[in-house]
Nucleic acid binder design. Structure first.
Lengths: 336, 336
DNA sequence: ATGAAAGCGCTAACAT
DNA sequence: ATGTTAGCGCTTTCAT
């Protein structure tokens, strides 16, 4: 293994000069820098990560804590992970599963394996909050707990997303709408984003003076079909549906059509889901995108600023963007 | 930060005794061990990862190199990643994207950030092979290159999987079969597993004396439909289909039915895909599972043995398991 | 069974 | 602008 002293000798300078020349942490004459860089390249020098971490108390590694639980759409997690890896230019990314729990966080943080953490899928009453507050490493959470005092959170503004969908339907003249939401257990464990969609959905419907109902929904086609039937029997005048459930979206639309309802002819459907999904369905669905990539980038950016000692806002809400596609249309005067 | 000397003082022993007591790397009296463990717990001692890596030249971190390219089914990658994290008990997992290329591998390996590497999505002529051979850290590849001399590979036996599907169809009396494969670019870049399926499929069909054809297929519903049409026009007597393309499976079955063919009444369909997908389709599909979890576990196990200096087989092929579901049936005497 | 002490390779004060 | 040097916290010989 070639080490810094080897490079120093080869370049005819001291080890510290090599360190500074390569890190740029103090001014080095143009000529010396070139010599050092040439020597480093010639010898194939790679600083030892552990030694560097020990001496500088910086590992240049971030932890990414990913959820693996029911009701979480896997591609979203993956896309997010990729965007974090990509955005974290000079940091590597350590994958921590949520199953490792608080112990996992403590392990990577307290051993100084990582400099900072990104925590996905934060619950309203997340048991990890106290720990994240006392950890001596900065963190950014994807999602909002009930009490975020002293923490840093970022996410799509799900409340606004719910509102946006209803407003879109209301503008098209729909007067009776329903929300098909996440699986029941998602609400039970208090996932903030799911509840915020409900709030936004309901508030916007009330404000527009239109009738609304909320239905949790499982992730299998069979459950989607059951929900579709319940929807129509409970709200016979229904003409607008908001879907916040990636897995159920396609089977739901299928179920509607099997039940004799054309989309968007009889029923307008909007969703909150990745664009990729909404645009590839048989009937492309009007949707508010889950901006995984943007959330990832911004999360890393916030983390870097915190690592730099900068103060950052506790909450960052990304505004929703609704893209019109083929699944929504003005309400017909005589529906059914 | 509490360090090993703090624990040593608290327990009334030397730092080396603490190290040995906690690592078990040399015999320690029962009583001393207890005292050390108690002190460590009382003080909340966590060994500094960097210091440990520097002193022991072991980081206890594995690199997982994941593909992000077209034609790769994301949930499979994610599930695999999770199984690696889970199986790698005492190692953490660093996520490296394939886009970082050879430089990425070199960075994490040469800086001693990781002890070993798991490389997914290996190509037949993978440019990383020479590097992996010369790297001073062990690696395991998921997938088989053409020339694996000196390397360690593991994967589902895709050739056998292709054979298995054909044999199943042949047993049911089908005499004309087709393989719907991966997107063309997957073959173009020489992804071994895709080609092996083709080989197995073709060989088994020839052996059984039945007619066969192979059709690459894109990942969009439109492309799936186009392929379905081509299939039927080119092989009018077709009654058995093998699908090796996660994204195309569902739209393909839909397309068949829209074209007036019942599954399995007119057309028997088998797939090579995750069980999770095969079993949740409208018509549950007879399939050979992609055992992501098992591949992950076995890969980690191989890596651990290599880290322990043990010799391991160059190639590990996991035998395919076919699960019968609703999509295959005996050929009817008078098809169409 | 335990202790003393020498590094592991790097960074960052502290010189000059 | 560059060099000297003292650690960073741990593991692991080498002693006893």
């Amino acid at each position: 293994m070639v080490k810094i002293t080897d490079v120093a000798r080869h370049a005819g300078v001291s080890p510290s000069t090599v360190s500074y020349a390569l890190s740029g942490k103090r001014p080095i004459s143009e000529e010396t820098r070139r010599r050092v860089e040439d020597s480093a390249r010639a010898l194939g020098y790679r600083p030892h990560a552990g030694a560097r971490a020990l001496a500088s108390s910086r590992s240049n590694v971030l932890a990414l804590v990913v959820p693996l639980r029911t009701g979480i759409h896997v591609p979203v997690v993956m896309q997010f992970a990729v965007s974090v890896v990509t955005a974290a230019r000079d940091h590597d990314v350590l994958l921590v599963t949520q199953e490792e729990g608080e112990e996992g966080l403590r392990r990577v943080a307290d051993t100084a394996l990582v400099d900072a953490l990104i925590v996905m899928d934060v619950q309203l009453h997340d048991p990890r909050l106290p720990l994240l507050r006392t950890l001596d490493r900065p963190s950014v959470m994807i999602g909002f707990p009930l009490e975020a005092e002293g923490l840093t959170c970022i996410d799509l503004d799900f409340r606004a997303a719910g509102e946006r969908c209803v407003e879109h339907l209301a503008q098209l003249g729909h007067r009776v709408v329903a929300l098909v939401g996440s699986p029941p257990q998602v609400y039970v464990r208090g996932t903030a984003f799911a509840q915020r969609v409900v709030q936004g959905f309901t508030a916007a419907a009330d404000r527009a003076g239109i009738a609304s109902a909320v239905h949790p929904c499982g992730t299998t086609p069979a459950e989607a079909r059951r929900v579709a039937e319940r929807l129509l029997s409970e709200q016979p005048a229904l003409t607008g549906v908001v879907v916040h459930n990636e897995a159920a979206l396609e089977p739901l639309v299928d179920a509607f059509e099997e039940l004799g309802l054309r989309v968007p002819g009889d029923l307008s459907v909007t969703a909150i889901c990745p664009d990729r999904l909404a645009s590839t369905l048989r009937v492309p669905v009007t949707s508010v995108a889950l901006p995984s990539a943007e959330v990832g980038e911004r999360a890393v950016e916030l983390l870097m600023r915190k690592l730099g000692g900068e103060a950052v806002p506790e909450a960052t809400l990304l505004p929703p963007t609704l893209t019109r596609r083929a699944s929504t249309a003005p309400r017909t005067v005589d529906p059914r």
